[in-house]
Amino acid sequence: MRQVEVFRIKSPYRDDMVVHGYTFGKGQEAACIIGSMRGTEIQQTYICSQLVKRLVELEHNGNISANKKILVIPTLNPYALNTSRKFWGVEDEDINRAFPGREMGKTNERIAKRLMDYVKDYTFGIQFASFYVDGEFMPHVRMMDTGYQNTSLANLFGLPFVVVRKPQPIDTTTLNYNWQNDMTAAFSVYSGYNETINEERAGQSVSAVLRFMTRMGILRYDCLSGYISHVINEESLTNVYAGKGGILRRLKDIGKEVKYGEPIAEVIDPFVGEVKETVIAPTDGIIFFQQREPLVNESDVIYRIVRRIHE
């Protein structure tokens, strides 16, 4: 393992924000893995740290393929992690809304540009990303429908789901979108957690990335085959909304199968404790996403369901 400095940002008062990468193997730039960009992405940082730990062992045992180089950058935003802020710096800018970045742009655009310049030659790009709503996902690989996406490759991670998202204007400034436009095969891996560490899911994510790199000939590593992923378009998911505001009581957990018409959640009156609404499953299927916050607004998405599949 070699520690490299990807870039450095100076602060008026704090230590320099040094973004480190860790490289394994030599030669062709094969896979780049990126952890957190937001201060709330603690699970993502943790996954990368565990990946680095495993890669140290694998490199020591000679399991990195010849002429293959791997780069892991656990975090692009240590400042935000250290202050429990979501975004970067005093201007509170989202790094993952600044790609492809500009050399002479705002600070977050410069960070994005420096990262893109540093990693542009890697064949595969993997990011541990987060969703803007605080909730829990089934582990999946997410890709933007840019026309360059390859769901067959995403299958090789062996996670339960591959999700293809039709990009909205707001998505065009993300790393994943711009990586793909730059002809890097880009994948976002969602372990399902952000601000809390879930060891089981973290381990699953590390294994998924090692499995992918093995299947792409970057590593020599014996591992289980994982899942044959179920590929879904994000727009085919059925959203289940709260019809009233209040305290959410979930009756079903993520990954569980639900039946059409079955009660799956309740919204409780915060003053008198009565059930204001019983939320009913609008379809058969499996819960892919669940809201984690205890308070819900009217119209908040409580669950997202993959329709008509069974456990």
Partner: peptide
């Protein structure tokens, strides 16, 4: 208008 969790609406 939509109902917020605790005794208020956003309008």
């Amino acid at each position: 208008s939509m109902e917020l969790p605790v005794g208020e609406h956003i309008k």
